[in-house]
Design a protein around this nucleic acid. Structure first.
Lengths: 135, 135
DNA sequence: AAAGTACTACGAAAGTATTCGTAAATTTAG
DNA sequence: CTAAATTTACGAATACTTTCGTAGTACTTT
């Protein structure tokens, strides 16, 4: 009886870790920590190994990760899908910064970023697909 | 020399306040606080007046708001635009949850949300416009 | 003018997230 | 087999955010 019913939306530090694991998993704390520091901009201070370890242990408690013991060391996997998590995060942002309007978020994202032509094509295709099935 | 060069990305509570002021400003703390409580879901606890006041005072320090004294009471205005702020917030989300890919954020937003047909039209028009000007 | 009402300033508590030090356990190297 | 290195668990410090209580000031009502 020590488990929360639903998994919470991950914090920023937790999302950093999930992003690594969504790309490649299962993996060790060591790998994740190295990877995080590689991706980090040079001006930032390094993340200590125990920091990453601690956050991953908390994530395990929260149900965001699972782990197994292989060769006497722990390897972790995401317990939440990228799709569901990204959707949760988006819902939060739409709410706190876009007055609840997902379409204005989309317009802002398209308008302000330099979206590549090939991405625009993919997005157009997706819209077409949605329109087809919602008639 | 007591001013930060750049204004920070607003926190969640700050964004709630900015959303009210982007819609209607200048306004008083009283108005904002009432409005926040109106918009809040019933299950949530009410936000106290001094809480809103305090956050707005902090926002003033950070350069997120400006204020004037009218009839011996303070009226506040946003010092940051909705456009710039939303773009900053999006940049953060794209980074922490979408591996830096704005287009995958857009795809997720379109795919998971129930985007209304008329919004899809607006989005299509925007894409068309971007494509026209980028060739 | 005293009492009540509304607003502002501000310190500090409470809540949450992130970071790290230290100790114990385990594995590897010599 | 012992010493060094790595990994794990966990408490606690730090940092950041949100909340509120209290006091002071000004305006209004009686």
């Amino acid at each position: 009886m020590n488990e929360k019913k639903i998994t919470p939306v991950p914090t920023d530090a937790e999302l950093d870790i999930l992003q690594v694991l969504w790309e490649k998993s299962p993996e060790t704390v060591r790998y994740i920590n190295d990877e995080l520091n590689k991706r980090r901009i040079a001006t930032d201070k390094e993340i200590g190994y125990t920091t990453t370890l601690k956050i991953m242990q908390l994530m395990l408690d929260k149900g965001l990760l699972t782990r197994e013991i292989v060769e006497r060391s722990h390897i972790y996997k995401p317990a939440v899908s990228q799709e569901v998590t990204q959707t949760q995060v988006l819902r939060g942002v739409v709410d706190t910064a876009f007055g609840g309007s997902a379409s204005s978020l989309v317009m802002r994202a398209l308008g302000s970023g330099a979206t590549k032509p090939e991405d625009l094509e993919k997005i157009k295709a997706l819209i077409q697909q949605i329109e087809d099935q919602q008639k």
